[in-house]
């Protein structure tokens, strides 16, 4: 295995004894790939992310992660009114000694990272005054500054409007392909996973999961089992693009049209 790769096998966790959230899970990705985690609420997505992050020791199984991991939380609330630059600078924590302060070189790296994310002009803006999408970009910049190999995102698109969802998906794509980071993200939107991910892990139940390349895993049958709702895989042409996506079928709603 090289830096940026990870694999976990036989992974299981129970907060209470014998009350398994999931068991025998397996998943892997190599550097530059995107892995999507899909599962209904309460299926243990956040628990799995915490385990991958090393913040939680799994009850069983092994995780092998090569390289530095950075985390982008779902809801980012900061108790104090830091600027975007302060936030990004915190990514240097590992490189600054316990009793030392960040040097101008660290600040330079932080500004560069903000500029790479296209928000260099917002460096001195208070973090809490930024929109949800901009905050995500700041946290991405922090991951760049930390020189992370693997980026773990907890539902990065959940609180965003369509335009910002698109922006974040583009960035996930770019971080993986251009910056060569491995990205793991959890999502409630199968079509997001379908759009950017290489690998997917469906958390179907305690002992039940599907893992593998997106095309093999995100099938109509699996998704019906996952969400209890039919999803249709569609292929169509849009301008010069051949689009392949997933569309949920809300069968019992008003606008249905039975012929």
């Amino acid at each position: 295995m090289s830096t940026g790769d990870f694999i976990f096998t036989g992974l299981g966790h129970a907060y209470l004894k014998d009350n398994w959230i999931f068991r025998n899970y397996r998943g892997e990705a190599v550097r530059g790939q995107v892995l999507a985690l899909l599962g209904p609420n309460g299926s243990g997505k956040t628990t799995l992310l915490k385990i991958l992050l090393g913040a939680l020791t799994p009850s069983e199984g092994s995780v092998n992660i090569q390289g530095q991991v950075a985390f982008v939380p779902q809801l980012f609330q900061v108790a104090f009114d830091y600027t975007a630059l302060d936030m990004v600078l915190m990514g240097r924590a590992k490189k600054v000694g316990l009793f030392s302060q960040p040097t101008p070189a660290d600040e330079e790296a932080a500004i560069n990272a903000l500029e790479r994310m296209g928000i260099g002009h917002m460096a001195y803006r208070p973090f809490h005054e930024m929109s949800g999408g901009q905050r995500q970009l700041v946290i991405f910049a922090r991951a760049l500054v930390a020189e992370a190999d693997i980026l773990i995102l907890d539902e990065p698109t959940s609180a965003l409007d369509l335009k910002n969802q698109n922006g974040i998906l583009e960035w996930i794509d770019r971080l993986a392909r251009r910056e060569n980071l491995t990205v793991i993200f959890s999502t409630h939107h199968p079509h997001h996973a379908y759009a950017v991910a290489d690998q997917a892990l469906l958390m179907l139940g305690e002992n039940d999961f599907e893992s593998g390349p997106v095309g093999d895993v995100l099938t109509e049958k699996n998704l019906l089992q996952l969400y209890g709702l039919p999803l249709k895989r569609l292929t169509f042409d849009y301008e010069d693009l051949n689009v392949e996506t997933l569309v949920p079928v809300f069968r019992n709603c008003k606008r249905r049209k039975a012929n």
Binding site: K50, L53, G54, A55, Q68, V69, A70, F71, P73, V78, A79, F80, Y82, D86, M90, G91, A93, K94, V96, L98, F99, S100, Q101, P102, A146, I152
Partner: peptide, 22 residues
Amino acid sequence: MGLRWRLNLLSLGDLDASSLGI
């Protein structure tokens, strides 16, 4: 005074701060 920048990191929250490797 030595730890004053680390206080910024601590004020982020456990999960986030530990993900920064401190």
